[in-house]
Structures are given as structure tokens and as C-alpha cells.
Computed example of a mutant assay.
Amino acid sequence: MKKYRPSFNKPSSNHPNNDDQSVRAKKHLGQHFLTDENIAAKIADTLSYEGYDKVLEIGPGMGVLTKYLLEKNSEVHVIEIDTESVEYLESHYLHLSGRIHEKDFLKHDLGEIFKQEQFAVIGNFPYNISTQIVFKVLQMRDQIPEFSGMFQKEVAKRICEKEGNKTYGILSVLTQAFFEAEYLFTVPPSVFNPPPKVDSGVLRLRRKENFSLDCDEKLFFRIVKTSFNQRRKTLRNSLKTLNLPDNLREDAIFGLRPEQLGFQQFIELTQKIEPYAVSSNR
């Protein structure tokens, strides 16, 4: 595949609307445009491109990351909700013709784009919907072997955190049950236009192959979420709403707090509870 790098007009840090080649960052969309070419290239390199040949970039903006993705031997699709950004991409990235999707990633049926094919997901994710993006990737994990991109640093760290730490939580457990999570590097506010008020962090998720949860998935998700809703309490107290029998609640695992359990222990906890769970409540 011929490598192609389209021209890119980086917006002025002081005057993002100084010409017709720039897109105005919109606060309600959580847009912070990356302006550092080296970081964009590093993010593109986080994907292995092994076992798939299609990539979906979320929120490409003016394509600073897109241009480096197009250099890889893969079929790049972008999904963007901002009409102004779509118009910019259509006029500057002719090689993306037919693969620019003006849709809301969270609401759009990605099966219309990829059918049953495998594809990776990447992007500089808006802070205000980043956790929702992760949950959708979890739902579609059978088609997504790899996922990487930029989050608010605190969120990226939480996703990759191990048990026993205060930042470890729902996202950590559910993500690590299905993916190998790795925090890669930190990005300062100064490389964005406009700059956010916090640092950003880039992470990579790689799907665990031949992995079986070995318990009821809906119940597993419910137990993890219910446990961390009262994370300071022991599981014996935080899971009271499940109306479990007293003899089960005397099991030693119920004396622990949720942050003390790794994802494998949450699987074991779900297996213990499963015989007592009411199917209709799962």
C-alpha cells in the first residue's frame, strides 16, 4: 500500500479561526486539538496492526493523528460528530473518501461500518465521554482486538491500575478482565489547542485471546458496579441488596473491600453468588 501523508494546516494557538483552514474547538464537544506532530506519530505507533487491517479513529478533528494512521498498511475509518471537522477532513484528506462517518460513536451501530470484521479503535478522546467509549469497546470486544488513545491522565491511570490502590475501581476491573491494559506515556496540556487544565495520558488495551469469563457476564458487571458504589464498605455490606443467604456471606471473601480484589477474584465471587442470584435480576 502506498504511504500517503496529506497536507495539514495546524491552527494557530492564539487564533484558531484565523483562516478558513482551521476548525474552531467546541467546548460542548470537549474538543482539545492535539498540535504536536511527534506525539501524534507516537500514538499512531501504539497499535500493532497485527491480526486486523482496519482502524477506526474517534474524533479526528483536523486529522493530526489521522495522517500518521494513513501511513500504516491499514484501512482507516474516522467517525466525527462535528460537522465543521467533517468538512475539513473531506477537503484535506481525499484518501478518506467514503470512510469519513459523520456519526456519534456512542450511538452509531458500528456493524454498519465493519460488519463482523476485526478492527482497532484509536483516538484523542474527549474527556467528557471517554469512559463511555471504553464501555462501548467492552461491549464490542469480540470485534476489537486492540484499543489505544489519549484520556485525561487520571482516567487512563485508573483503567490500568491494579488492585490495592485508591484509584482502582469499576473501569479497572471490567477492562482488565478482557484486555491487557498498559499505561504508555503522559502528555502535557501545552501541546493542545486550547490547552486542557490537566495532563493527559496515553494507554493501550490488547484483548485477551481464548479468554472465558467462566461466569454470568451480566451478573459479573452488576457485582463489580454494586461493590464499588460503596467502596469503603466490605463486600458483606455493599452487596446486601443481592439478598444473599447468611451462610454465603460468612465466606472470607465477603470480609474484603472491593479495591482488594483483582478481576480474577471478582470472577470467583460471581461464581459463588451465581447459584443464589435471581435470573430476572441479572
Score class of each variant (00 low, 15 high):
K10F: 01
I81N: 03
E87T: 07
D199T: 10
L174W: 05
Y183K: 05
L174Q: 10
A177P: 07
R141H: 13
G255A: 14
N73K: 13
F263G: 04
R158C: 12
L96C: 04
K240W: 11
Q31E: 14
H32F: 02
E209S: 08
K162G: 04
F125G: 05
I144K: 03
Q230P: 05
N17P: 00
L269A: 10
L94Y: 07
N18V: 11
V76G: 05
Q118T: 07
C160V: 05
R222K: 14
Y127R: 04
G63K: 08
C160F: 06
L219T: 11
V86I: 00
V278M: 05
L269N: 08
Y168W: 01
D246N: 08
N229D: 06
I58M: 15
T131I: 07
R249C: 14
M140R: 14
T35I: 10
Q264P: 15
L138G: 07
A120T: 05
L89F: 00
P275H: 11
H15M: 13
F8P: 12
V86T: 00
P275S: 12
I253M: 08
K233M: 01
K272D: 04
D82Y: 15
V86L: 00
A277E: 05
N165Q: 04
Y88K: 00
V198Y: 06
D251E: 12
L248N: 09
E80P: 13
A177E: 10
S7W: 12
N9Q: 13
E163D: 03
N124A: 01
E75Q: 05
N73I: 06
F179S: 02
L29G: 01
A44S: 12
I159M: 12
F135V: 03
S190W: 02
Y183G: 07
V155I: 08
I129D: 14
H101S: 11
L56T: 07
D82T: 15
P16W: 11
